[in-house]
């Protein structure tokens, strides 16, 4: 069965650096797909090409079996790893502004409620804390009630309550049969949320499968302290080495 998204021979070069090195994979409808990898692996680059925000050096992206049309932007919700918003607008005004850019939308109150923005709704959006900002970015990704949701490190900077809240949101969206593409550096999070995982390093895909498949395939012999079973983190470290990344 062809996936909701087909990524075919994708390459992205920056001058001398090849950030994405000829990767192909597909993302089925209705899953939470996790893209994992060390810093600089090429996750953000890959995901932003799929989002049609940056253009690839070569390769092709198919959405529902066809090249992405203008309607693609109506159907996707995006949380960028790094972005800025219009200044001098309050959180609520920012949400309303973005809501008006779409035909289909979620109710503002629902999104505010879901992302716990009620207390800061009247604050200017450049005068909020780092975690509050992350929650606002998540709210913007949800504002058009998307069928396909891209979340690039959504849990970075969140406190434990907000992180659990994020997980609940993601699980609820997945229950509705929608598709989520997620990157994260928290293996616990990936193991909990993702049905399907790809590990990237140096611009290449180096592993693919469900969390359990990955553990079984790559970590059946992982040495743990004997008190616990091998987990996704053991897989990750085995696959990408112990060295620090830039």
């Amino acid at each position: 069965m062809p996936g909701l998204l087909e990524i075919v021979n994708l390459v992205k070069k920056y001058k001398t650096l090849t950030a994405v090195d000829n990767i192909s994979f597909s993302i089925p409808q209705g899953v939470c797909f996790g893209l994992l990898g060390p810093n600089g692996a090429g996750k953000t680059t890959t995901i932003e090409i799929i989002e049609d925000v940056i253009s690839p050096t070569s390769g092709e992206i198919l959405y529902k079996g066809k090249p992405r049309a203008a309607s693609f932007r109506e159907e996707v919700g995006i949380q960028f790893q790094k972005t800025e918003l219009l200044s001098w607008l309050t959180i609520e005004e920012t949400l309303k502004t973005f809501q008006s850019l779409y035909h289909k939308s979620s109710a503002i109150e629902d999104v505010i409620e879901m992302c716990q923005l009620n207390e800061i709704r009247a604050q200017y959006n450049d005068k909020v804390s780092g975690g509050q900002r992350q929650r606002l970015f998540l709210a913007l990704a949800l504002i058009n009630d998307p069928d396909l949701l891209f979340l690039d490190e959504p849990s970075t900077g969140l406190d434990p309550q907000a992180r659990h809240n994020l997980w609940d949101i993601i699980l609820k969206i997945r229950e509705q049969g929608k598709t989520i593409v997620l990157t994260t550096h928290y293996m616990e999070e990936a193991q909990k949320l993702c049905d399907d995982i790809a590990i990237m390093d140096h611009g290449k895909l180096i592993a693919r499968g469900t969390p359990q498949e990955l553990i079984n395939t790559y970590c059946s012999d992982c040495v743990t302290d004997g008190l616990r079973a091998p987990n996704l983190e053991d897989v990750f470290i085995r696959m990408t080495g112990r060295g620090l990344r830039d």
Binding site: R73, F80, K82, T83, L86, H103
Partner: peptide, 12 residues
């Protein structure tokens, strides 16, 4: 700073 990138991701 990425404001335009955020807007580009919408139907605008």
């Amino acid at each position: 700073i990425g404001v335009l990138k955020r807007l580009k991701a919408t139907p605008l």
